[in-house]
Write a protein that binds this DNA or RNA. Structure first.
Lengths: 187, 187
DNA sequence: ATGCTAATGCAACTAAAGTTGTGTTAGGGT
DNA sequence: ACCCTAACACAACTTTAGTTGCATTAGCAT
Protein backbone atom coordinates (compact mmCIF):
# COMPACT_ATOMS: atom_id res chain seq x y z
CA UNK A 1 0.00 0.00 0.00
CA UNK A 2 2.88 2.31 0.72
CA UNK A 3 4.79 1.71 -2.53
CA UNK A 4 2.43 1.84 -5.46
CA UNK A 5 4.49 1.05 -8.51
CA UNK A 6 1.67 1.36 -10.98
CA UNK A 7 -1.06 3.73 -9.86
CA UNK A 8 -2.70 3.77 -13.28
CA UNK A 9 -6.29 3.51 -14.23
CA UNK A 10 -7.08 -0.10 -13.43
CA UNK A 11 -5.44 -0.19 -10.02
CA UNK A 12 -7.32 2.89 -8.98
CA UNK A 13 -10.57 1.53 -10.34
CA UNK A 14 -10.38 -1.66 -8.31
CA UNK A 15 -9.48 0.35 -5.24
CA UNK A 16 -12.47 2.60 -5.70
CA UNK A 17 -14.73 -0.38 -6.33
CA UNK A 18 -13.54 -2.25 -3.25
CA UNK A 19 -13.70 0.71 -0.88
CA UNK A 20 -17.06 1.70 -2.27
CA UNK A 21 -18.44 -1.79 -1.76
CA UNK A 22 -17.00 -1.90 1.75
CA UNK A 23 -18.73 1.37 2.51
CA UNK A 24 -22.07 0.25 1.12
CA UNK A 25 -22.04 -3.10 2.90
CA UNK A 26 -21.01 -1.48 6.16
CA UNK A 27 -23.91 0.91 5.86
CA UNK A 28 -26.25 -2.01 5.35
CA UNK A 29 -25.13 -4.66 7.81
CA UNK A 30 -22.50 -3.01 10.00
CA UNK A 31 -19.02 -4.09 10.90
CA UNK A 32 -20.12 -7.52 12.03
CA UNK A 33 -21.54 -8.29 8.62
CA UNK A 34 -18.45 -7.24 6.72
CA UNK A 35 -16.58 -10.04 4.97
CA UNK A 36 -14.06 -10.07 2.18
CA UNK A 37 -16.18 -12.47 0.17
CA UNK A 38 -19.14 -10.10 0.38
CA UNK A 39 -16.96 -7.18 -0.71
CA UNK A 40 -15.62 -9.22 -3.60
CA UNK A 41 -19.07 -10.15 -4.80
CA UNK A 42 -20.44 -6.62 -4.49
CA UNK A 43 -17.49 -4.86 -6.06
CA UNK A 44 -16.99 -7.34 -8.88
CA UNK A 45 -13.32 -7.58 -7.93
CA UNK A 46 -12.05 -11.11 -7.51
CA UNK A 47 -11.48 -12.08 -3.90
CA UNK A 48 -7.92 -13.17 -4.62
CA UNK A 49 -7.07 -9.62 -5.59
CA UNK A 50 -8.58 -8.25 -2.41
CA UNK A 51 -6.81 -10.78 -0.22
CA UNK A 52 -3.51 -9.94 -1.87
CA UNK A 53 -3.82 -6.15 -1.74
CA UNK A 54 -5.43 -5.74 1.65
CA UNK A 55 -5.44 -9.09 3.41
CA UNK A 56 -8.10 -8.29 6.00
CA UNK A 57 -11.34 -6.42 6.51
CA UNK A 58 -9.68 -4.12 9.00
CA UNK A 59 -7.04 -3.12 6.48
CA UNK A 60 -9.77 -2.18 4.03
CA UNK A 61 -11.47 -0.05 6.66
CA UNK A 62 -8.11 1.55 7.42
CA UNK A 63 -7.63 2.40 3.76
CA UNK A 64 -11.18 3.67 3.38
CA UNK A 65 -10.81 6.03 6.30
CA UNK A 66 -7.43 7.32 5.23
CA UNK A 67 -8.76 8.02 1.76
CA UNK A 68 -11.51 10.20 3.24
CA UNK A 69 -9.22 11.89 5.75
CA UNK A 70 -9.13 15.14 3.80
CA UNK A 71 -12.87 15.58 4.26
CA UNK A 72 -12.34 15.92 7.99
CA UNK A 73 -14.45 18.03 10.25
CA UNK A 74 -13.66 21.69 9.94
CA UNK A 75 -13.24 23.43 13.27
CA UNK A 76 -14.75 26.93 13.27
CA UNK A 77 -13.13 29.87 15.03
CA UNK A 78 -15.44 32.87 14.94
CA UNK A 79 -14.14 34.21 18.23
CA UNK A 80 -17.24 33.11 20.11
CA UNK A 81 -15.97 30.01 21.92
CA UNK A 82 -19.38 28.80 22.97
CA UNK A 83 -20.77 29.00 19.45
CA UNK A 84 -17.65 27.39 18.01
CA UNK A 85 -17.85 24.49 20.45
CA UNK A 86 -21.52 24.00 19.66
CA UNK A 87 -20.76 23.84 15.96
CA UNK A 88 -17.93 21.42 16.60
CA UNK A 89 -20.16 19.22 18.73
CA UNK A 90 -22.81 19.09 16.05
CA UNK A 91 -20.29 18.07 13.42
CA UNK A 92 -19.09 15.27 15.71
CA UNK A 93 -22.64 14.03 16.10
CA UNK A 94 -23.23 14.17 12.36
CA UNK A 95 -20.00 12.36 11.62
CA UNK A 96 -20.97 9.57 14.01
CA UNK A 97 -23.98 8.88 11.87
CA UNK A 98 -21.57 7.92 9.11
CA UNK A 99 -21.68 4.11 9.03
CA UNK A 100 -18.00 3.91 8.18
CA UNK A 101 -17.07 5.83 11.30
CA UNK A 102 -19.15 3.42 13.32
CA UNK A 103 -17.47 0.46 11.66
CA UNK A 104 -13.97 1.74 12.34
CA UNK A 105 -14.89 2.45 15.93
CA UNK A 106 -16.36 -1.02 16.30
CA UNK A 107 -13.28 -2.54 14.71
CA UNK A 108 -11.05 -0.68 17.13
CA UNK A 109 -13.15 -1.94 20.03
CA UNK A 110 -13.54 -5.48 18.76
CA UNK A 111 -10.00 -6.45 18.09
CA UNK A 112 -7.12 -7.26 20.32
CA UNK A 113 -5.64 -4.17 18.77
CA UNK A 114 -4.44 -5.19 15.36
CA UNK A 115 -1.88 -2.45 15.79
CA UNK A 116 -2.36 -0.46 12.65
CA UNK A 117 -6.00 0.20 13.41
CA UNK A 118 -5.23 1.21 16.97
CA UNK A 119 -2.58 3.53 15.64
CA UNK A 120 -5.00 5.04 13.14
CA UNK A 121 -7.53 5.56 15.87
CA UNK A 122 -4.95 7.24 18.09
CA UNK A 123 -3.81 9.62 15.41
CA UNK A 124 -7.35 10.47 14.42
CA UNK A 125 -8.37 11.39 17.95
CA UNK A 126 -5.10 13.14 18.77
CA UNK A 127 -5.69 15.37 15.78
CA UNK A 128 -9.36 16.01 16.39
CA UNK A 129 -9.11 16.60 20.12
CA UNK A 130 -6.05 18.75 19.63
CA UNK A 131 -7.81 20.98 17.14
CA UNK A 132 -10.90 21.26 19.30
CA UNK A 133 -8.74 22.13 22.27
CA UNK A 134 -7.49 25.13 20.30
CA UNK A 135 -11.01 26.54 20.39
CA UNK A 136 -11.07 26.17 24.16
CA UNK A 137 -7.66 27.81 24.53
CA UNK A 138 -8.79 30.74 22.38
CA UNK A 139 -11.84 31.10 24.58
CA UNK A 140 -9.67 31.10 27.68
CA UNK A 141 -7.47 33.80 26.19
CA UNK A 142 -10.54 35.95 25.58
CA UNK A 143 -11.76 35.30 29.09
CA UNK A 144 -14.85 33.46 27.92
CA UNK A 145 -13.79 30.21 29.59
CA UNK A 146 -12.24 29.62 33.00
CA UNK A 147 -8.47 29.50 32.45
CA UNK A 148 -8.05 26.85 35.12
CA UNK A 149 -9.85 24.19 33.05
CA UNK A 150 -7.84 21.62 31.11
CA UNK A 151 -8.73 22.22 27.42
CA UNK A 152 -8.55 18.58 26.38
CA UNK A 153 -10.73 17.56 29.35
CA UNK A 154 -13.30 20.13 28.27
CA UNK A 155 -13.29 18.66 24.77
CA UNK A 156 -13.75 15.12 26.09
CA UNK A 157 -16.58 16.36 28.30
CA UNK A 158 -18.34 17.41 25.11
CA UNK A 159 -17.38 14.64 22.71
CA UNK A 160 -17.66 11.79 25.24
CA UNK A 161 -21.36 12.06 26.02
CA UNK A 162 -22.24 12.52 22.35
CA UNK A 163 -20.28 9.45 21.47
CA UNK A 164 -21.83 7.55 24.32
CA UNK A 165 -25.36 8.45 23.37
CA UNK A 166 -25.02 7.71 19.68
CA UNK A 167 -22.84 4.61 19.85
CA UNK A 168 -23.84 2.96 23.11
CA UNK A 169 -27.34 4.10 23.89
CA UNK A 170 -28.05 4.35 20.17
CA UNK A 171 -30.32 7.33 20.41
CA UNK A 172 -30.04 10.55 18.45
CA UNK A 173 -28.70 13.71 20.01
CA UNK A 174 -30.75 16.85 19.77
CA UNK A 175 -29.65 20.44 19.83
CA UNK A 176 -30.60 21.06 23.44
CA UNK A 177 -28.55 18.11 24.63
CA UNK A 178 -25.50 19.47 22.85
CA UNK A 179 -26.03 22.92 24.30
CA UNK A 180 -26.33 21.46 27.77
CA UNK A 181 -23.06 19.63 27.26
CA UNK A 182 -21.19 22.71 26.13
CA UNK A 183 -22.58 24.79 28.98
CA UNK A 184 -21.60 22.14 31.50
CA UNK A 185 -18.11 21.68 30.08
CA UNK A 186 -17.25 25.40 30.14
CA UNK A 187 -19.16 25.87 33.43
CA UNK B 1 -32.67 -21.16 27.63
CA UNK B 2 -35.97 -19.99 28.95
CA UNK B 3 -37.45 -23.41 29.75
CA UNK B 4 -34.90 -25.56 31.49
CA UNK B 5 -36.53 -28.92 31.98
CA UNK B 6 -33.64 -30.53 33.73
CA UNK B 7 -31.43 -28.08 35.60
CA UNK B 8 -29.56 -30.84 37.39
CA UNK B 9 -25.86 -31.26 37.96
CA UNK B 10 -24.56 -31.99 34.52
CA UNK B 11 -26.46 -29.26 32.71
CA UNK B 12 -25.24 -26.67 35.17
CA UNK B 13 -21.69 -27.97 34.97
CA UNK B 14 -21.52 -27.56 31.21
CA UNK B 15 -23.02 -24.12 31.48
CA UNK B 16 -20.45 -23.07 34.04
CA UNK B 17 -17.65 -24.55 31.97
CA UNK B 18 -18.76 -22.81 28.77
CA UNK B 19 -19.36 -19.40 30.31
CA UNK B 20 -16.10 -19.66 32.22
CA UNK B 21 -14.17 -20.50 29.07
CA UNK B 22 -15.89 -17.68 27.21
CA UNK B 23 -14.85 -15.28 29.94
CA UNK B 24 -11.25 -16.47 29.98
CA UNK B 25 -10.84 -16.35 26.22
CA UNK B 26 -12.46 -12.92 26.04
CA UNK B 27 -10.01 -11.66 28.62
CA UNK B 28 -7.13 -13.01 26.57
CA UNK B 29 -8.00 -12.16 22.97
CA UNK B 30 -11.05 -9.91 23.13
CA UNK B 31 -14.34 -10.11 21.33
CA UNK B 32 -12.77 -10.42 17.92
CA UNK B 33 -10.93 -13.57 18.93
CA UNK B 34 -13.96 -15.31 20.37
CA UNK B 35 -15.14 -18.40 18.50
CA UNK B 36 -17.36 -21.29 19.50
CA UNK B 37 -14.70 -23.79 18.54
CA UNK B 38 -12.22 -22.13 20.85
CA UNK B 39 -14.75 -22.14 23.67
CA UNK B 40 -15.47 -25.82 23.04
CA UNK B 41 -11.80 -26.72 23.16
CA UNK B 42 -11.10 -24.70 26.27
CA UNK B 43 -14.16 -25.80 28.20
CA UNK B 44 -13.95 -29.46 27.24
CA UNK B 45 -17.59 -29.34 26.17
CA UNK B 46 -18.28 -30.67 22.72
CA UNK B 47 -18.96 -28.01 20.16
CA UNK B 48 -22.19 -29.67 19.09
CA UNK B 49 -23.60 -29.12 22.55
CA UNK B 50 -22.63 -25.47 22.51
CA UNK B 51 -24.09 -24.89 19.08
CA UNK B 52 -27.34 -26.50 20.15
CA UNK B 53 -27.72 -24.70 23.44
CA UNK B 54 -26.53 -21.26 22.46
CA UNK B 55 -26.10 -21.14 18.72
CA UNK B 56 -23.85 -18.10 18.56
CA UNK B 57 -21.05 -16.30 20.35
CA UNK B 58 -23.31 -13.36 21.05
CA UNK B 59 -25.85 -15.59 22.78
CA UNK B 60 -23.10 -16.92 25.04
CA UNK B 61 -22.04 -13.40 25.91
CA UNK B 62 -25.66 -12.55 26.58
CA UNK B 63 -25.98 -15.50 28.95
CA UNK B 64 -22.68 -14.76 30.65
CA UNK B 65 -23.69 -11.19 31.37
CA UNK B 66 -27.14 -12.09 32.60
CA UNK B 67 -25.64 -14.66 34.96
CA UNK B 68 -23.47 -11.95 36.51
CA UNK B 69 -26.22 -9.36 36.57
CA UNK B 70 -26.73 -9.74 40.29
CA UNK B 71 -23.18 -8.56 40.91
CA UNK B 72 -24.09 -5.21 39.46
CA UNK B 73 -22.64 -1.94 40.56
CA UNK B 74 -24.04 -0.81 43.85
CA UNK B 75 -25.03 2.82 43.88
CA UNK B 76 -24.14 4.56 47.15
CA UNK B 77 -26.42 7.09 48.79
CA UNK B 78 -24.66 8.68 51.73
CA UNK B 79 -26.51 11.94 51.34
CA UNK B 80 -23.49 13.70 49.88
CA UNK B 81 -24.40 13.77 46.18
CA UNK B 82 -20.96 14.79 45.01
CA UNK B 83 -19.26 11.98 46.90
CA UNK B 84 -21.88 9.48 45.75
CA UNK B 85 -21.46 10.47 42.12
CA UNK B 86 -17.70 10.20 42.44
CA UNK B 87 -18.03 6.68 43.84
CA UNK B 88 -20.45 5.75 41.10
CA UNK B 89 -18.12 7.12 38.42
CA UNK B 90 -15.21 5.12 39.80
CA UNK B 91 -17.24 1.91 39.75
CA UNK B 92 -18.16 2.56 36.14
CA UNK B 93 -14.51 2.99 35.24
CA UNK B 94 -13.56 -0.18 37.10
CA UNK B 95 -16.35 -2.13 35.46
CA UNK B 96 -15.15 -1.05 32.04
CA UNK B 97 -11.84 -2.71 32.73
CA UNK B 98 -13.72 -6.00 32.91
CA UNK B 99 -12.97 -7.72 29.60
CA UNK B 100 -16.46 -9.19 29.43
CA UNK B 101 -18.01 -5.76 29.62
CA UNK B 102 -15.76 -4.64 26.80
CA UNK B 103 -16.74 -7.68 24.76
CA UNK B 104 -20.45 -7.11 25.19
CA UNK B 105 -20.04 -3.45 24.33
CA UNK B 106 -18.04 -4.36 21.24
CA UNK B 107 -20.64 -6.94 20.27
CA UNK B 108 -23.40 -4.40 20.63
CA UNK B 109 -21.47 -1.96 18.45
CA UNK B 110 -20.35 -4.51 15.89
CA UNK B 111 -23.60 -6.05 14.86
CA UNK B 112 -26.56 -4.77 12.97
CA UNK B 113 -28.21 -5.30 16.29
CA UNK B 114 -28.81 -9.00 16.69
CA UNK B 115 -31.87 -7.92 18.59
CA UNK B 116 -31.40 -9.75 21.84
CA UNK B 117 -28.03 -8.15 22.47
CA UNK B 118 -29.32 -4.70 21.66
CA UNK B 119 -32.19 -5.33 24.04
CA UNK B 120 -29.82 -6.50 26.76
CA UNK B 121 -27.72 -3.41 26.26
CA UNK B 122 -30.77 -1.16 26.46
CA UNK B 123 -32.05 -2.72 29.65
CA UNK B 124 -28.61 -2.62 31.21
CA UNK B 125 -28.16 1.08 30.58
CA UNK B 126 -31.74 1.99 31.41
CA UNK B 127 -31.25 0.39 34.78
CA UNK B 128 -27.83 1.83 35.49
CA UNK B 129 -28.59 5.36 34.30
CA UNK B 130 -31.92 5.28 36.11
CA UNK B 131 -30.30 4.34 39.39
CA UNK B 132 -27.55 6.90 39.00
CA UNK B 133 -30.15 9.54 38.21
CA UNK B 134 -31.69 8.83 41.62
CA UNK B 135 -28.49 10.11 43.22
CA UNK B 136 -28.78 13.31 41.24
CA UNK B 137 -32.44 13.74 42.16
CA UNK B 138 -31.62 13.26 45.84
CA UNK B 139 -28.92 15.89 45.53
CA UNK B 140 -31.36 18.28 43.90
CA UNK B 141 -33.83 17.72 46.72
CA UNK B 142 -31.13 18.59 49.23
CA UNK B 143 -30.20 21.69 47.26
CA UNK B 144 -26.73 20.36 46.47
CA UNK B 145 -27.37 20.30 42.72
CA UNK B 146 -29.14 22.85 40.53
CA UNK B 147 -32.76 21.65 40.26
CA UNK B 148 -33.01 22.85 36.66
CA UNK B 149 -30.56 20.19 35.41
CA UNK B 150 -31.89 17.04 33.78
CA UNK B 151 -30.75 14.15 36.02
CA UNK B 152 -30.16 11.67 33.21
CA UNK B 153 -28.19 14.25 31.25
CA UNK B 154 -26.00 14.82 34.29
CA UNK B 155 -25.37 11.08 34.51
CA UNK B 156 -24.46 10.84 30.83
CA UNK B 157 -22.14 13.82 31.27
CA UNK B 158 -20.25 11.72 33.81
CA UNK B 159 -20.45 8.26 32.30
CA UNK B 160 -19.99 9.34 28.68
CA UNK B 161 -16.48 10.80 28.97
CA UNK B 162 -15.31 7.89 31.12
CA UNK B 163 -16.62 5.44 28.56
CA UNK B 164 -15.08 7.45 25.76
CA UNK B 165 -11.67 7.60 27.38
CA UNK B 166 -11.49 3.93 28.31
CA UNK B 167 -13.10 2.39 25.25
CA UNK B 168 -12.19 4.77 22.44
CA UNK B 169 -9.04 6.56 23.48
CA UNK B 170 -7.99 3.48 25.42
CA UNK B 171 -6.30 5.35 28.20
CA UNK B 172 -6.91 4.89 31.90
CA UNK B 173 -8.93 7.40 33.87
CA UNK B 174 -7.42 8.86 36.99
CA UNK B 175 -9.15 10.22 40.06
CA UNK B 176 -8.69 13.87 39.12
CA UNK B 177 -10.32 13.34 35.74
CA UNK B 178 -13.36 11.80 37.40
CA UNK B 179 -13.59 14.63 39.90
CA UNK B 180 -13.40 17.18 37.09
CA UNK B 181 -16.25 15.39 35.35
CA UNK B 182 -18.48 15.36 38.39
CA UNK B 183 -17.78 19.01 39.13
CA UNK B 184 -18.54 19.96 35.55
CA UNK B 185 -21.72 17.93 35.40
CA UNK B 186 -23.23 19.38 38.56
CA UNK B 187 -21.81 22.86 37.80
C1' DA C 1 4.15 0.01 -32.05
C1' DT C 2 6.37 -3.31 -29.05
C1' DG C 3 8.05 -5.59 -24.85
C1' DC C 4 8.11 -5.96 -19.96
C1' DT C 5 5.83 -6.98 -15.84
C1' DA C 6 2.62 -5.29 -12.10
C1' DA C 7 -1.93 -6.19 -11.27
C1' DT C 8 -5.88 -8.89 -11.91
C1' DG C 9 -8.65 -13.05 -12.97
C1' DC C 10 -9.50 -17.90 -12.56
C1' DA C 11 -9.69 -22.49 -10.67
C1' DA C 12 -8.34 -25.76 -7.55
C1' DC C 13 -6.87 -26.34 -3.08
C1' DT C 14 -6.53 -26.29 2.39
C1' DA C 15 -8.48 -24.86 6.67
C1' DA C 16 -11.92 -23.48 9.68
C1' DA C 17 -16.79 -22.77 10.94
C1' DG C 18 -21.10 -24.59 11.39
C1' DT C 19 -24.74 -28.59 10.83
C1' DT C 20 -27.00 -33.06 11.16
C1' DG C 21 -27.90 -38.04 12.36
C1' DT C 22 -27.21 -41.38 15.71
C1' DG C 23 -25.74 -43.49 19.77
C1' DT C 24 -24.60 -42.81 24.91
C1' DT C 25 -24.89 -40.85 29.57
C1' DA C 26 -27.10 -39.35 33.57
C1' DG C 27 -31.02 -36.35 35.89
C1' DG C 28 -35.29 -37.09 37.89
C1' DG C 29 -39.68 -39.20 38.30
C1' DT C 30 -42.18 -43.59 39.43
C1' DA D 1 -34.36 -50.24 42.09
C1' DC D 2 -36.17 -49.16 37.70
C1' DC D 3 -37.39 -46.66 33.49
C1' DC D 4 -37.84 -42.57 30.62
C1' DT D 5 -35.82 -39.04 28.14
C1' DA D 6 -33.32 -34.49 28.31
C1' DA D 7 -28.80 -33.36 27.62
C1' DC D 8 -24.59 -34.65 25.88
C1' DA D 9 -20.70 -36.85 22.89
C1' DC D 10 -19.06 -38.45 18.65
C1' DA D 11 -18.38 -38.70 13.78
C1' DA D 12 -19.44 -37.54 9.33
C1' DC D 13 -21.05 -34.00 6.57
C1' DT D 14 -21.95 -29.18 4.33
C1' DT D 15 -20.70 -24.60 4.01
C1' DT D 16 -17.84 -20.61 4.19
C1' DA D 17 -13.21 -18.37 4.73
C1' DG D 18 -8.69 -18.05 3.24
C1' DT D 19 -4.50 -19.67 0.19
C1' DT D 20 -1.70 -20.94 -3.82
C1' DG D 21 -0.14 -21.76 -8.70
C1' DC D 22 -0.79 -20.35 -13.13
C1' DA D 23 -2.88 -17.86 -17.08
C1' DT D 24 -4.41 -13.34 -18.74
C1' DT D 25 -4.85 -8.36 -18.99
C1' DA D 26 -3.30 -3.79 -19.23
C1' DG D 27 -0.20 0.15 -17.35
C1' DC D 28 3.97 2.24 -18.60
C1' DA D 29 8.52 2.70 -20.45
C1' DT D 30 11.38 2.46 -24.63
Amino acid sequence: MSTITRPGGRTERTRTAVLGAAFTITAEVGYGGLSIEAIAERSGIHKTTIYRRWGSVDAILFDAIVSRAESAVLLPSTGDARADLNAMARSVAENLEDPMSRAVAAAALSGTGDGSLKELSDRFWDDRIGKAAEIVKAGQKEGQIDAKLDPSVVVVEIIGPIWFRVMVLQVLVDRSFIEALVDGAIR
